[in-house]
Write a protein that binds this DNA or RNA. Structure first.
Lengths: 262, 262
DNA sequence: CGGTTCCTTGATAACGATCAAAGGCCGTGG
DNA sequence: CCACGGCCTTTGATCGTTATCAAGGAACCG
């Protein structure tokens, strides 16, 4: 199954897309937490300068290709991973082989922390939807740091509470809204992290995933998502070319979230 | 809406049920964390004896009637709540008025902690499905305790990680399994906390909720749940009388979780 | 080109939601 | 004590959304 997944990820189109997007780039080895652009948004911002320097010393930086797994469900948890750039998906697979993408992690977010704190190994797989650079902090060093800086634990707690709320909210949407609404919701949620405002006021959205993966994320079948997208196109809510979605008028997309309206 | 909810909870039958179950009972004012039966399972077990005594000093104990809310969605978060006995449901209501029960909390579990750590007020409502005794720990005292005992934060982190996994798992089941399977799953999950083994090897389950609430919990309509239950009865998997479910053979119920069988 | 993967489209079926109505249970009030 | 009235539950009928099955098409790598 891992092999199949690997194969599936080698979609040539996407790879080209990804390459095009790889413009500004610092060599991974030079990354320092002190100068990290995402420090402000991450839980690490509670650390003092010398503590960040210590993280710098113990961390490992690695760049993953599209489709590569950062960690795999079932593995022992060796640490946590801070996304420096790129997009990561967390996929849960059950015993029957069903799989679902639980959530995405963007630059600045830390992944694997819940599994680290639960202490029972990784319970989902984190893999990259885009070329992604990740800082890996080994378990033991993290434990040391948590002991020395209890505030860090509280920061993770706040992060966990957010994830929990998000999970609860989507769980609710799963039940109450149609696939078309969920697709619209997904596009809206990706707007901030992957959208580019255009001169005419429209928004160009570069989907960091295949439509198939989008289906996995919203809990639907690829065919159903395809139909929902075609419907949105037919109603002039969006325009789609490959993995680029153009949102002409944001209000139209927002209207899609309302229960029964034109 | 709160009024309507209050009305709905005054179902006379359930009230009688509840009264019958109120047998062994200590006066709430005498409860001490030191002698709490659930200490071992809760995050508080990481505290030292004198710290527990301090919690005893600052906490408030209160017994709630069936249907009473411990806290309400949207309120400011004034602290967290440790369930001493009874059953609590967390209900999330969205802007359109849809509501769903996210999870249950049994004796020994702490509720409201995620909202406390997120620091944005309560994001769901916790109300009692049964007469319930709860220890309330005010925010400020909890903050003090977290500062003095960082391990407590880690304990909550572990708890949060469990809740997150549970949320992810149910979110997956929502998509992959039928209502009948989800009902079976619910009964199985309540077996430990609300089941009583009978002499003939059967298990008697005292549902701590109405079927309507069960529907809200598994993300389905009451009518659909009713039909699923009737189906399980017809297939001799369970017997139902009011809110008591008798499971003759556990294996039959476990078989219900498999995709296509019998 | 061949091969693979993803996307699209069509036809059909199943599951669950919805609408509607009736019965049961039990506290309340007359 | 009985009748009323809530609310929950059940059952029926129907509709709609989505899954499923199936096949064709497009994009792109080697």
């Amino acid at each position: 199954m891992a092999a199949e997944s690997e194969m599936r990820r080698s979609d040539p189109r996407r790879f080209k897309d990804a390459m095009v997007r790889q413009t500004h780039w610092a060599p991974p080895s030079r990354l320092s937490c002190l100068t990290c652009n995402h420090l402000g948004q991450s839980e690490w911002c509670v650390l003092a300068k010398d503590q960040l320097e210590e993280i710098d010393r113990v961390k490992t930086v690695r760049t993953y290709k599209e489709g590569e797994a950062i960690y795999t469900q079932g593995e022992a948890c060796l640490g946590i991973h801070c996304v420096e750039s790129g997009t990561v998906a967390m996929r849960l697979t059950d015993v029957q082989g069903n799989s679902k993408i639980l959530r995405l992690a963007q630059a600045g977010q830390t992944v694997g922390y819940a599994d680290f704190f639960a202490g029972k190994g990784y319970r989902s797989t984190a893999y990259c939807l885009r070329p992604t650079t990740v800082c890996h902090i080994p378990s033991q060093d993290l434990r040391d740091m948590l002991n020395r800086c209890p505030t860090l634990g509280l920061a993770f707690l706040a992060h966990g509470a957010e994830d929990l709320l998000h999970s609860d909210t989507t769980s609710m949407q799963q039940v109450t809204s149609t696939v078309r609404m969920r697709v619209s919701q997904l596009l809206l949620s990706l707007k901030d992290s992957h959208g580019i405002s255009e001169s005419d006021g429209a928004i160009a959205l570069n989907l960091p995933m295949t439509w198939q993966e989008a289906a996995e994320l919203i809990g639907a079948r690829p065919e159903t998502v395809s139909r929902a997208v075609q419907g949105l196109i037919a109603d002039h809510v969006i325009q789609v070319a490959g993995h680029t979605v153009k949102i002409g008028d944001l209000d139209n997309l927002l209207d899609e979230l309302e229960p029964q309206t034109a």
